[in-house]
C-alpha cells in the first residue's frame, strides 16, 4: 500500500550554533497522508528535526520535500508545502487580530482578497472558530490560541503539516478537542510530542529520538505493545497496554494494517 514519498531525510546532522550536537545521521521517509509521531524526551532533537522540514533550520545532509530539496533557493516553495506550527501560540500568532494572522500566509502567497477571505473562513471553520475573525489574539484562551495557530497553516493549504507539541499546556478537554480537530485534517502530518496518548490517538507510526539519534521507527501498535522500548523511554507501559485494549486509538481506520489491530 506504499503511496508517494512526501518527505525524504538522508544523513541529516545538525549542530547548534554553540556547537552542541542536536541531530546525528537521521534517516526518515514519510508517505502521503501518513501521520507520524516524533517521540522522545526533552532535548532529544524532536523540534530541531521538525524545523528542518521547512528550512527554518538547515543542517548537513539531504531533506527532500515532495521531490524538492530544501535549499535556500527553494525555500519559498517549500514553505508553501510545509505548514509549520510552533509550540507556543504566542510565537505563531503575531498579528493584532485572528483574521490578520490566519490571512498572513495566503496573502504572502499572493492570493487575491476574495480567495484569502474564503480560505480564512474555511480554516477557522475547520478549527471550530467561526466568528473569531475580529477577536484580538491576546484575549483568547490557550486552547483557542492553539486552534488559531493551526488555522494559520491550514489556510495555506499545505500538503504537509508539521506540528510542534500541539496539545502542550492544554487541559484534558481542550486537548481532546484539538486532537479531534487534528484528526479531521486529511494532510500528511508530522507531530512532535512527548505525550504517548496524544501520539497514539493521532498517529499510526512513531519515530523515537534520543540524544539526536533515531532509535526506533515502528508502527504505533507495535510501540504500544513493546514494553522494553516504552520503559526505556519512560512511558507507562501499562497505560499503553490499556490503550491497546480499549481500542481508543486509530479512529481513522482507512489504513488496512491498523484495521487489523482494531478487530
Amino acid at each position: 500500500m506504499q503511496t508517494n514519498k512526501v518527505i525524504e531525510i538522508d544523513h541529516l546532522s545538525y549542530d547548534y550554533p554553540d556547537g552542541t550536537p542536536a541531530l546525528r545521521d537521521i534517516h526518515l521517509e514519510v508517505y502521503e497522508h501518513e501521520s507520524l509521531a516524533v517521540l522522545g524526551p526533552n532535548g532529544a532533537g524532536k523540534s530541531t528535526l521538525l524545523y528542518h522540514l521547512n528550512g527554518t533550520l538547515m543542517g548537513e545532509g539531504r531533506v527532500i520535500i515532495l521531490g524538492i530539496p530544501v535549499e535556500k533557493n527553494n525555500l519559498k516553495e517549500i514553505r508553501r508545502k510545509v505548514g509549520l506550527v510552533f509550540q507556543s501560540p504566542e510565537d505563531q500568532l503575531f498579528c493584532p487580530t485572528v483574521f490578520d494572522d490566519v490571512a498572513f500566509g495566503p496573502l504572502n502567497m499572493g492570493l487575491d482578497k476574495e480567495s484569502v477571505q474564503h480560505r480564512v473562513e474555511k480554516a477557522l471553520e475547520m478549527m471550530g472558530l467561526k466568528g473569531f475573525e475580529g477577536r484580538s489574539t491576546y484575549h483568547l484562551s490557550e486552547g483557542e490560541k492553539k486552534r488559531v495557530a493551526l488555522a494559520t497553516v491550514l489556510s495555506m493549504d499545505s500538503e504537509i503539516l508539521a506540528l510542534d507539541e500541539p496539545t502542550d499546556n492544554l487541559d484534558p478537554a481542550g486537548s481532546r478537542l484539538l486532537i479531534e480537530r487534528i484528526q479531521s485534517i486529511p494532510q500528511t502530518k508530522v507531530i512532535v510530542t512527548h505525550h504517548l496518548p496524544v501520539a497514539a490517538d493521532l498517529c499510526e507510526r512513531a519515530v523515537l529520538l534520543y540524544g539526536g539519534r533515531k532509535i526506533e521507527d515502528l508502527p504505533m501498535r507495535e510501540l504500544l505493545k513493546d514494553r522494553v522500548i516504552l520503559e526505556r523511554f519512560g512511558f507507562d507501559a501499562d497505560y499503553a497496554q490499556w490503550m491497546v485494549e480499549r481500542n481508543v486509538k486509530f479512529q481513522r481506520s482507512e489504513f488496512p494494517e491498523l484495521r487489523r489491530v482494531q478487530d
Binding site: Y51, N54, T56, K76, R79, R80, G83, L84, F86, S88, E90, D91, Q92, F94, F99, D100, A103, F104, G105, L107, N108, M109, K113, V116, Q117, T152, V153, M156
Partner: peptide, 23 residues
Amino acid sequence: HRGERVYLAMLSRGYHGTMPETT
C-alpha cells in the same frame, strides 16, 4: 529570543520583507 522565534514563524508562512495588505 521571542523576537527571533516570531520572525521564524513569519518566515515559515512565506514572509518576504513586507507585511501583506488586508481588506
